[in-house]
């Protein structure tokens, strides 16, 4: 079973639409994992028919019991995150600022602080309308530990793919280069970078590829909206050649992307004759490398 991660650096380049199209192409051969856990959208296209949901606990946050607190203020003085403040002589933890280091808990002289484990999100094992299994998740608002939730989604998806004897685990990653992206790359066999022919898209592609290189994972690139800026598109292709990234496909600017999303369809369902040949070609190229 091979693990393929789709990332982009920049958001809004068409990553999830492309991932849904590949999911459609490989509906009998792959398990899908939506690892963009703080803005998960694939379920809006793949419409789960049935789901098994589980709470995800990770990390802790401090709370102060008012009756036991002696108002000495030691907790607030050691907190590096300015999460503890006095209100009417009583100390309170701002839950959004607390990073769960437990320093206050360890030094509180009256034992007034507790550190309950936090439910930071949920993950779901779903049967998508296409037939393939979709593992997706939702991180709670403002929650930390998105990287840990990504790791959880991936490990559940990996297990599922092996159990179902699938050839691929297809992972939709999040934008950026930080913890959720790093977590989605860990253990991957192949990376598909989705960029667009814009200065921003190219700049973000270079930064995310610098990250991928540290993992020694081979990569291929899809240039979306390739025709909006032929100059940048050429520069991107030169870069791909230099960095030994496979130029997988160039996709023209197309209103099919938002139209398909709005109809809750994959690109192939939106316009079979245009998109099936494009994605079949991509799929064959990926299989060849694998």
């Amino acid at each position: 079973m091979k693990e393929i991660v789709i990332i982009s650096g920049k958001g809004g380049t068409g990553k999830s639409s492309i991932c849904c199209a590949l999911a459609h192409l490989w509906k009998d051969r792959a398990v899908i994992a939506d690892c963009d856990v703080d803005a998960a959208d694939m379920h809006l296209i793949l419409h789960p028919q049935s789901s098994e949901s589980k709470d995800f606990f990770s990390g802790i946050k401090a709370t102060i019991e008012a009756e036991t607190c002696s108002s000495c203020g030691l907790c607030a003085s050691v907190c590096r995150f300015d999460a503890i403040s006095a209100q009417k002589g009583k100390y309170l933890v701002n839950q959004l600022d607390c990073e769960g280091c437990a320093y206050c808990y360890r030094i509180c002289p009256t034992g007034a602080i507790s550190i309950p484990e936090q439910k930071v999100g949920q993950y779901h094992i779903s049967q998508s309308r296409l037939g393939c299994t979709l593992i997706h998740a939702q991180l709670n608002i403002g929650a930390e530990n998105s990287g840990k939730l990504v790791s959880k989604v991936k490990s559940v998806a990996r297990h599922q793919a092996k159990q179902e004897h699938k050839d691929f685990l297809l992972v939709d990653g999040s934008p950026g280069i930080g913890c959720p992206v790093i977590a989605s790359l860990s253990g991957a066999h192949f990376v598909i970078l989705v960029t667009e022919a814009s200065k921003s898209g190219f700049s973000d592609l270079k930064r995310v590829w610098e990250l991928v290189k540290r993992f020694n994972i081979p990569g291929a690139c899809i240039v979306n909206k390739a025709d909006i800026n032929p100059v940048i598109c050429r520069e991107i292709n030169e870069y791909l050649l230099k960095e030994k990234i496979l130029a997988l496909s160039e996709i023209p600017y197309s209103e099919d992307f938002p139209a398909a999303i709005s109809m809750g369809r994959t690109l192939m369902e939106q316009n079979e004759s245009t998109w099936r040949p494009i994605f079949e070609k991509m799929g064959n190229a990926i299989k060849e490398i694998m």
Binding site: D38, D41, L44, L139, G142, E144, S146, P180, P258, G264
Partner: peptide
């Protein structure tokens, strides 16, 4: 982007937030 800790850190000192989105289900 997103709604996790990084976004929160960036907006929490603001007096006003402009959210920008597009008219699709995503």
């Amino acid at each position: 982007p997103g709604t996790a800790c990084a976004m929160l850190s960036a907006v929490k000192t603001a007096d006003f937030v402009v959210l920008i989105s597009e008219p699709t289900p995503f």
